[in-house]
Amino acid sequence: MLKKLFYFLLILSGTQLFISCGGCSDKKSKSGDALTLNDSLISDAPLKLSEDIMGEVIQNISSPVEMANLIKSSGAEFSQRILNNPDNVSRYETSYKRALNLGVFSADLGYINIYDKNNVVVSYLLAVKNLADGIRVGQFFDFNALRRMASNSTNLDSLMEMSVTSFNKMDSYLRDQNRSNVSTLIVTGTWIEGLYIASSVVKETKSKELAIRIAEQKNIIDILEIILSNYISEPNFATLVEDIRELKAAYAPIRITTELAEPKRIEKDGTLIVIQDEISTVHYTEEQLATIMDLISKIRNKIVE
């Protein structure tokens, strides 16, 4: 009896260990360090910001959903012309270029998904896959599942959730590997492309909402400059930081003022809605915005060339 129980437990424990090791493959790759890059984006230099703060900041800038939603609600038609071309992927031969353009294509995917353009989504997913593989982080994306979801517009939330989760896992892995600079490049690419698409739509539709959203980024560019400056000793980063600083200078004349209003609380269909009592207003001129949009376009074109 005891023997039978022993064998039963042995088999069961083997199965349990096998199942619970489902997420162990990443750790194995880490210890083997098979994921180092030839044109290494691995940094040993001490960071001015701690890895934890970097992680928080990076994960905050990464969602392209809100900008994409705003673009769609501006009434603008979908335009593939303004997106990066998936055929360009083969031209990106360095980790620096691949990481930046991984961000660019992620923002493009957010835009494509919001417009339910299932016919083009696969080529963009493939671009993301090739770039992610190129910087050895492809293992964090289940491309078959993403492709399945992307072909069904009702799965948009699941698709976004999966993309965000994949990004967070990848970011945490990169930080473990002292490769936060790669994550930083990805979010920079995503942010710039989101603003580039928004600028293209503003130029065409004069959407006030989008124009305000672009101007509001004055607060975000400060954060981006801080995280990129961590790596300024690397030549590629030095050029990018220079570009971002030029953009920051263009944002300088924009003023954001705040005033306090009465706090409001509404209960609607059983949901408590709290309306913030602090209201901010963005003050900018058309010329200032035009300068910013031109600079965004210049930086973005440099990234995708």
Binding site: E216, A261, L272, I273, V274, I275, Q276, I279, S280
Partner: peptide
């Protein structure tokens, strides 16, 4: 600004209308 615990009870999913972009 908001909490899901108010007046001794838990609200499942409160909404927040943001009027200032920041962290």
């Amino acid at each position: 600004l908001i909490s899901n615990f108010e007046g001794g009870k838990i609200t499942k999913a409160p909404d927040f209308v943001c009027r200032t972009t920041k962290v």
